[in-house]
Amino acid sequence: MRAQFKNTVSELAAQDDSIVIVLGDISVYMFKDFWEKHPNRFYNMGICENTLVSVTAGLSSQGFNPFVHTICPFLTDRSLEQIKLDMCYNNFAGNIVTCGATFDYAWDGATHHAYTDLASLRMLPNMEVLHLGSKREVDALIRSQYKSPRPTYYRLSDHPHTIETNTEFGKGTVLKNEGAPLTVMTAGPILTNVMEACRDLPVNLVYFHTLKPIDKALIEQFRDTEILVVHDAYGLYEAISEVPALRMRYHGLPDAFCGWYGTVHDIRKRIGLDPASIRAAVQTLLEDRSQAARPR
């Protein structure tokens, strides 16, 4: 997804002088050709996330369309106030692009795990929040949103899905509609596991890449079903909750630091986000519903 980000932005920058890249000493080699082609629009600014965001706001104030990019927790947790005030409150737009989603840097431990970004950025007025799941989504949504008058957050992962989805900003995708009483809703790359888990189960499956604004009209279509949110971060459950009075459950992160290493797959398995565990969770819910419906 990072390579797609670079390719898309490079293509756009060839035609649009307003694009400026601000890096926090990450993805630098990947952007080498951009740097060579546009040296005055490429800044590997340093490991100074607060200033990266403030500078991005300042560039935006003067009519540029900047992309600030570095590792997720350091940009979105450490610099939350810069995003809130310098971008959102000042109404200076710009593009915030992170890598290292959730457990992408599993082996680096909890300092590098990132799961609060979507939820916290969702709460900021003016913000657009994207949990991108595939390379197609990266390409389409950067193209459609990079000149948005609002700050836009793009969360990239090293483990994209390859499933065809609607890439229109603000729109979700119904991947399975069986008229079932249970609907699984998910977002981002974990769709790979959710799809595998639910493929032959009698549930509906709805997917989102845009968490803010969330596609309320689509959610409304499943109001009469029970909704199971399966997500490897915080933010989607809260976004769906914007639609009032839904029957919802969450299957995702524990309220604990995930103090293991290994790979993203290792940690997903440990906390129940591998396909088998997700399937078991859905089946349990289906059995509970079935027992509740049985006459006593």
Partner: peptide
């Protein structure tokens, strides 16, 4: 957004200088 002549909304300390750096960089670019 409210006061003519004010270029950046500030209040939380340590923010305005970073925005000014971005503005100066924009002028250079």
């Amino acid at each position: 957004t409210k006061v003519p002549g004010v270029e950046a909304s500030t209040g939380s300390l340590g923010h305005g200088i970073g925005i000014a750096v971005g503005m100066a960089l924009a002028a250079k670019i």
